[in-house]
Design a protein around this nucleic acid. Structure first.
Length: 294
DNA sequence: AATGAGCGG
């Protein structure tokens, strides 16, 4: 680095009127960067004021390190010599490393946001639909506009006839029943497959899980779901924790639910944690009354 | 004091 001082006072300004910390850098010529040249030598020329208010030219020469990546970029350097094409052909050489495409790309929304339900006034469909649902037809009992298949009051009683239609009556393996049939919705849940015992492991099991739901109240508002999990999982396998959150404020409403795989574990958790002091509060832990629809 | 969100052919 070489420094040569130019004893050249800047006379346009009266220094006495300037504050000490005034930034006078704008008076200086701009910083120049030259290179790196073919030897990897980079030269930076900049100007500064020294303590006496004199302008000082600072020339910094440095060698740009040759990195492994530089060798890997050989191909990239080679590419720079390729003739430009497209919009880049009209650009100044080197003015852009990257071309920004001005092409318009239209993205299609699957469903228009905030779109109103389509005009269905002409038929009775609008009375059959609830807000948000386009058309609700239960696949089990075929009732329109009343409930979804999952909430069908008859869902445990009998499968709809066409579920079995495209299956041979006997002798097929269960995997065959999953194969898509022509033009039909063909997936058959294991509990509904031909020969499955509906009373054994299917819907019955699921309902029991729903009943192992424990309500936790008097939670402090900064208790989150991971905290509930930490608190309850020592009693047995937990399938779900939930903390009710106020949708407007985002803060906890002070209660939550914990679902257990086994009712016995849930009962032990209730016995142990009801009245348990947690975060300065006394927890209330008891069986939750199941929601009307699950 | 207090009983959950959102999913869907």
């Amino acid at each position: 680095m070489t420094i040569d001082t130019q004893q050249q006072k800047t006379s346009k300004f009266r220094w006495g009127e300037m504050d000490e910390d005034d930034d006078l850098d704008f008076l200086l010529p701009p910083k120049q960067v030259i290179g790196p040249d073919e030897n990897g030598l980079k030269t930076v020329v900049e100007y500064k004021f020294n303590d006496e208010g004199n302008r000082v030219k600072i020339t910094t020469k440095s060698r740009v390190r040759k990195l492994a990546s530089a060798r890997l970029n050989k191909r990239a350097i080679e590419r720079r010599s390729w003739p430009k094409f497209g919009e880049a052909a009209n650009e100044d050489a080197g003015s852009h490393l990257t071309m920004v495409s001005t092409e318009e790309i239209v993205l299609e929304r699957p469903k228009a946001l905030g779109a109103k339900a389509e005009d269905t006034k002409e038929d009775g469909l609008s009375q059959l639909t609830k807000p948000g649902a386009v058309l609700m037809v239960c696949r089990t009992c075929r009732k329109k506009g009343d409930h979804w298949t999952s909430k069908c009051p008859y869902k445990d009683l009998a499968a709809p006839a066409d579920v079995f239609e495209d299956k041979p009556p006997t002798g097929e393996t269960s995997t065959a029943s999953v194969a898509p049939g022509p033009g039909k919705s063909s997936y058959v849940p294991p509990s509904m497959r031909h020969g499955a015992d509906k009373n054994a492991m299917g819907s019955d099991m699921r309902r029991r899980n729903d009943e192992n739901s424990v309500r936790v109240t008097n939670l402090s508002e900064d208790t989150r779901e991971p905290d509930l999990m930490e608190l309850f999982h020592p009693f047995g396998a937990v399938t779900r924790v939930y903390v009710a959150i106020d949708q407007k404020t985002g803060v906890s409403r002070g209660f939550g639910f914990v679902n257990f795989v086994s009712r016995e574990d849930a009962q032990r958790a209730i016995n142990k944690l009801n009245g348990y002091g947690y975060d300065n509060l006394i927890l209330r832990v008891e069986w939750a009354t199941p929601r009307p629809t699950q």
